[in-house]
Design a protein around this nucleic acid. Sequence first.
DNA 1: AAAAACTTTTTTATCGATAAAAATTCGGGT
DNA 2: ACCCGAATTTTTATCGATAAAAAAGTTTTT
Lengths: 241, 241
Amino acid sequence: MDETPVTLADLADGNLRRDILSGAFKPGEKLSIALLTNRYAIGASPLREALSRLSAEHLVVLEGKRGFTVAPVSVAELDDISACRRLIETEAVSQAVAAGDEAWESRMVAAFHKLDRAEERIQQDTGSLDEWEQRNREFHEAVVSACGSPWLIRLQKLLYAQHERYRRVSLTFREPDRDLRGEHRAIMQACLDRDAAAAARLSAEHIDRTVLAVHAVLAAGNVPPRRTRSSTRTASLPNRR
Amino acid sequence: MDETPVTLADLADGNLRRDILSGAFKPGEKLSIALLTNRYAIGASPLREALSRLSAEHLVVLEGKRGFTVAPVSVAELDDISACRRLIETEAVSQAVAAGDEAWESRMVAAFHKLDRAEERIQQDTGSLDEWEQRNREFHEAVVSACGSPWLIRLQKLLYAQHERYRRVSLTFREPDRDLRGEHRAIMQACLDRDAAAAARLSAEHIDRTVLAVHAVLAAGNVPPRRTRSSTRTASLPNRR
DNA sequence: AAAAACTTTTTTATCGATAAAAATTCGGGT
DNA sequence: ACCCGAATTTTTATCGATAAAAAAGTTTTT
């Protein structure tokens, strides 16, 4: 019934989003239209449109007559985003627990299962990180999906994306001493038990643990260069052609 | 020295934002590129870019190959937005009270004064509503400005804009039995007294009162006759196909 | 007269070209 | 050698044109 007309700008949006979140484009990096056009084989107009959307989501920044750049990262902003995500997501989880029906439960269980399998494969070094990231996102979206508030969901997605970027910028490896599977399972279980307080608390702790891990990596010297006026040397490798 | 290069897309953004928030463009109304180009005397490309940004903020919606429309309104979404704004703004106010310095206090006092004067003029029927709206926005932004969290501020702006649109769509007249000046003064006073709990509570109540008022208007029949701006189609009905 | 199929009109999405602005290079003067 | 400023290159922002899709209108068929 409902067609899905996909436009070139949508494609560009998807590509850019993926490459920014995955860290293929580094924070602060210049996003030159000319380069992007032959990287994606998409014209300048759709690209500009996609970049405009992303700039409203603060994944890229658009400066006056100076073009687009990937939004910079900083420890301070990591803390800021994390605090906001905690605020939004604990509220959303609580409401979801209160309002969720059976369909929600099964969505959650299904998403958890797929994520759990990906975790498994990662631990055996036979899985892709991209896949894990996608399923992790889907799990967290499933959990809050029953909160009944489109805006909470929208904000959750927004902040999750920002958070994911930080995670992937710094976490190319896995932390060995962390039981992610257990954390996810616990969140789901609290939801199934309809224990809103526990679900919210576990979610908050889950976020906090991630923040600590990323924090450690960021603080340990490997801080990407902060954007300053015109000092944006392309220290990264767009690696095209 | 930071220059401020203003681009045509920025101009279009500003114009569109103003006209959507003020209700000159009605919810659900089609935003045809051709019409907009000679309304603002701005080319199609900058317009498209501005509309893309606004669609990321959910002030306009972009459907597949069907063009842009002003985002629709509904009572359900009003409640949703209001709840989110309450969540964000109470948190931001609390943090601002905890972290605000003297400069913050004076920003707030100054903004309150300007708003209060506008209130005064409105009550005497010698003031413009646009001016009042701007100063109201500036006051609320001043209150949260010291919260120390750029993302909380960003979210506050986002939700405030949505809320403003609802207010202006339905509130062409003033509610006589409401002491807005007193409410604003009370919020500011609680902030100056460094009473975070009271400031948060008063802000929440402030939002809730607004919601009730808008709710009443929205529920009692549809959108009241706004200023004549080539009202093309039915504005408030969720029209499909 | 209603439905279906075709045609015309309108409008969107996109491209290619271009003017303007910023970054870069280059060259003389101190 | 170094700094300042003019000329050059690069890149951005924008326009005008165009192909394609949707909407509106028209005709034909039942």
